[in-house]
Write a protein that binds this DNA or RNA. Sequence first.
DNA 1: CTTAAATATTTCAAGCTTGAATTATATGTC
DNA 2: GACATATAATTCAAGCTTGAAATATTTAAG
Lengths: 158, 158
Amino acid sequence: MTAPAAKRSADLSKERLRLWLKLLKASKAIEDEVRRRLRNDYGSTLPRFDVMSALDRAPDGLKMSEISKRLRVSNGNITGIVDKLAEEGLALRVPIPGDRRAHLVRLTGKGREVFEGHALAHEAWINEILSGLDVADVDGMTRRLDHLSAALEGDADA
Amino acid sequence: MTAPAAKRSADLSKERLRLWLKLLKASKAIEDEVRRRLRNDYGSTLPRFDVMSALDRAPDGLKMSEISKRLRVSNGNITGIVDKLAEEGLALRVPIPGDRRAHLVRLTGKGREVFEGHALAHEAWINEILSGLDVADVDGMTRRLDHLSAALEGDADA
DNA sequence: CTTAAATATTTCAAGCTTGAATTATATGTC
DNA sequence: GACATATAATTCAAGCTTGAAATATTTAAG
C-alpha cells in the first residue's frame, strides 16, 4: 500500500504551500497598512522605523554591521538609511577609539524624541489592526508561530 | 476595579505587538529563502514569479490592472515587470478589440514552460522549508491564519 | 617589519516599489 | 457633436534592497 502514503505526502506538500501563501498574505496586509500609516502620519518609512527601533534599544550605539545583522538586511542598505537619518539630525556616527574602520551609530536627542512618538503610534496601530483577536487568539497564534520559528531554525541548523 | 482591567488591556496590546513581530519575522525568513533560491537556481525574482503565476492561472490573459489588483501592487510596478518578461519572450501583450487603451498580457509557450519548472521547484522548496511541521501543525496554523485573515478583513469593512 | 588574511564600511548597478502626473481612450450627458 | 468624467497604462522621481567590487583598517604569521 504505497499509493495512499504517497498521496498523503503530496497532500501535505500542497497544504504546506497553501499555509505559506496564507501566512504571506496576512503578513503583507499588515505590513502594507503600517507602511501606509508611517508615510501618511509621519512622512517616514518602515526601514527607517526599524533602524531607529534597533538604535533606540541600544543606547550605547551600534556598529553598522550590528544594525544590518539585527535587521537581517545588507550592509549597503544600512549605509543609505543611516545617511538619511544623519542628514535629518535623527542619528549620528561617533568614532570608535582604537578602530578607525568602524563607527558607532546613535540616535540624537531629537531622534529619540521622534522615535518615541512613532513607537507609541506603531503599537496603537497594531493593537487596532489586530483588534479582532482576543487574548486566546493571540496566545494560540503566538504558540503556533513559536513552533514554526523553531521548525525554521531547526531546518537551518540541520 | 478599573486598574486590573486597564492593566489587562495594556498587556493585550503588548501581546498583539509581539505577535506581529513574530509573524513578520517568520514570514520574512521564508520569503528571503525563496528569493535566494529563485535567484541562485533560476536567476529570477519573486515579483517575476508572482506575475507569471497570476498569468499562468489565467490562460486567456489578464489586463495590466487585473494583475496589479490580484498582486496588490501598483500599476506602474507591473508595467516594468511585464516589460522585462516580454523582452525575454516569456510574456506578450495582445490588443483587445474594441478597447485601444488596454491589452491582455499572456504567457508565451516558453513562458508557460519556464513557469512550470519554477512552480514545481517552488512547491518543493516550501515543502522542505516547512518540513518541520506535520499535518496537525499545518492544519492548526492554517486555522489560526484563516481566523487572523477574517479579523483583518472585518477591520477593513468596519 | 612585511605580507596575507580578516574585518568594517561604502560604492555601485540593477531591480523592485510607490504615488503622482501624464497620455490615451471610452463612456455618459446635454 | 461637445464636454466632463471615468478608465487603462505609462512615465517619472524618490526610496528600498541586494550582492559584488572597492577602500580602508586591523590582526596574524613569518
